[in-house]
Design a binder for these strands. Structure first.
Lengths: 143, 143
DNA sequence: CTAATGTCTCTAGCAACTATAGGTTCAAGG
DNA sequence: CCTTGAACCTATAGTTGCTAGAGACATTAG
């Protein structure tokens, strides 16, 4: 039996995050000790490690919720799980593409800076004048 | 003179976002019409366009606040502005590196899926077993 | 003049946590 | 046995950058 602190240490997740996951229903409500403290077992640890790993791969919590419910049904086809992973892969690729465009724009800005005064600073000027950009960019999907 | 709707349309920013920027002090409080509606002029539009462009390049609002106050002081050295841009470039590059690692991991997961049942699904299994990963990954800095 | 659209303020919500406050329980040392 | 300090408990609010809604007033086109 693990206390919440041990569980967090074992899975690499902070204690408040575990309580948060419980609150939003990603983790089931665990047993409690006489003194009302949460007690976890190995399956709880596995589940939390699963969640953490999926988060590290950028899956949103909703997708993780789906993946967890799928993993509870071992006999089902894995088509759905596959689709979720593919979707995530596409999202990651889209972000990379966006960020590369931004990277290029920032590189140009910084490279052109002549280190003079603000009045003729390329950084400030480019920001004020979108027409100088090569590619369209919108960071919203990368954040 | 522009109403808030016209200003938003001209700068490509939604109306509530403009009010939000005013609220957090990124935009100065504009004049009002007799009927208490906000009225903007060309400098306001320029400032908003500047903000929007910087956002598109991924600058956080705090950095934009700094850049704006710098751009109000044309005689100062542009060293500070340059530093902010470089910092942003580094942040973007770091995100790209992270995301590429994730991309690779997700590709492996998806490629190995045999489209059978959940019980032997690679997607589910890899998520449950971090040891199968090649590179360490942590998405927190990419989101 | 009326109807539709735009604007006003205020509040609450999103993701995914993180931090704080004020209190309780537990494990170890004396 | 008792105390001390760490770990735990709940509840609330804050983070970033907006977005959505409610209910009321302003403006404009027909």
């Amino acid at each position: 039996m693990l206390t919440i602190g041990k569980l967090g240490a074992a899975a690499g997740v902070k204690v408040p995050t575990i309580r948060y996951y419980e609150q939003i229903g990603l983790l089931t409500t665990p047993d409690r000790s006489r003194g009302n403290q949460r007690l976890y077992d190995k399956p709880d640890l596995d589940r939390l490690a699963f969640i953490r790993h999926a988060r590290e791969l950028g899956f949103p919590l909703d997708a993780i919720r789906e993946l967890l419910s799928l993993s509870d049904q071992p006999d089902q086809s894995c088509t759905a799980a596959d689709a979720i992973a593919r979707r995530q892969l596409l999202a990651v690729r889209a972000r990379i593409a966006r960020l590369k465009a931004l990277e290029g724009e920032l590189e140009r800005m910084v490279a052109q800076c002549a280190h003079g005064t603000i009045a003729d600073c390329r950084v400030i000027e480019v920001l004020g004048n979108h027409g100088q950009c090569i590619a369209p960019h919108d960071v919203r999907s990368t954040e």
